[in-house]
Design a protein around this nucleic acid. Structure first.
Lengths: 193, 193
DNA sequence: CTCCATAAACGAACAGTGTTAGTATATCAT
DNA sequence: ATGATATACTAACACTGTTCGTTTATGGAG
């Protein structure tokens, strides 16, 4: 019954480490407690329940994703910025698949909590589009299209849904991003008309 | 100990009904067994395990989705076919969200089993694109872009990720589909060059 | 320096999950 | 009528998240 001096942050950090190394589907509070040399029940002194912990991990994941996106588009404009953003997003999804999955399954858990973090997802995209001459409403729509393409592609690639044909997946992605850029340019023309 | 005369098909059908009415996250073998007036263990006389049942439900879901897509594009070509397909896909996702979720989470469960069904997902899309003058390789790439947009949009809408701005979601979707059509036309020009 | 409130640990238990093993029996074909 | 098979059962196991009541180490106040 030794005091371990664990903090809430320690637990969240350990949970993230466990998810990244063992995979999201193998995560459990008991195993997390084991790693911290603690009983599962003791976790509840620091967190309300699993959903709360999950949401906390989601915040971390979103802030990490935001970081790499903002880094990627720094100093870039228009098509170059869009490509850099898409690239960073794709890299994040491939390099940290388990953490990315947390983002995906997050909204189901807590729709309200995610609303705040939602703008962290939107912000890099809005910044990347800033170089185009678009209205605010156009950007609000296009932001959704942007996210749909990036997320949709990565989710299916990660799930192994692109194995019907042997053609290069990276090239498919470039094509998807090109579609996005075409749409941005097209919308720009409409805005000027 | 009365013989109920249940078949494998009965169980799959009951599982689908339960998922559609109660939601995927509330599905459990015990509750399924209750509805069939059977003990949970008895289910194992008909199915190997839960994953197998899940995969079976996935096959059903994919065939249903394929059906509405093929119906939608019948007699249509090019942009009209693409829009009809996107519409049918979107409607399916909204009208049968729980069944659609099964498709989403299916590949994680069994990558091999889904490979066969994968072509059922691809087929309507390839058919819709048939009116464009594209090479086989182009279509194989574009098919991925197609799926990414449709899936990405619906997944995020369903998860409530589009609530940052009040702009009409249906219009965002039309914009996404327009991007797709732009890309198809653009690819067509490149193929002719 | 002592005392006490609080925070952080514990063990035990509960209800739920999927799953397996062994057993009984109703039904169907011989 | 008999025997094999398919279908049901009960009981149990190893997990899951979670709650309860209890203990105890620690930090701050008197």
């Amino acid at each position: 019954m030794v005091r371990r001096g664990l903090t809430r942050a320690d637990i969240i950090q350990a949970a993230i480490a466990m998810i990244e190394s063992e995979g999201l589907h193998r995560f459990s509070l008991r195993e997390l407690a084991n790693r911290l040399h603690i009983q599962a029940a003791s976790l509840y002194n620091h967190i309300r329940n699993m959903d709360e912990l999950y949401t906390e991990i989601g915040y971390y994941a979103i802030s990490e994703l935001k970081k790499v996106q903002l880094d990627a588009i720094a100093g870039k404009r228009r098509a170059e910025a869009v490509e850099a953003l898409a690239d960073a997003y794709h890299r994040f999804g491939k390099e940290r698949p388990e953490i990315y999955k947390v983002i995906l399954s997050l909204p189901m858990v807590k729709n309200d909590a995610i609303h705040r973090a939602g703008f962290d997802i939107v912000e890099p995209i809005m910044t990347a589009m800033a170089g185009y001459h678009l209205t605010q409403v156009q950007m609000e729509h296009l932001q959704r299209v942007f996210r749909s393409i990036l997320h949709g592609f990565i989710a299916q690639e990660e799930a192994g849904c692109f194995r019907q044909y042997p053609v290069d997946v990276a090239e498919s992605y470039r094509l998807a991003v090109r579609g996005l850029i075409l749409l941005l340019e097209n919308s720009e023309k409409e805005a000027q008309a």
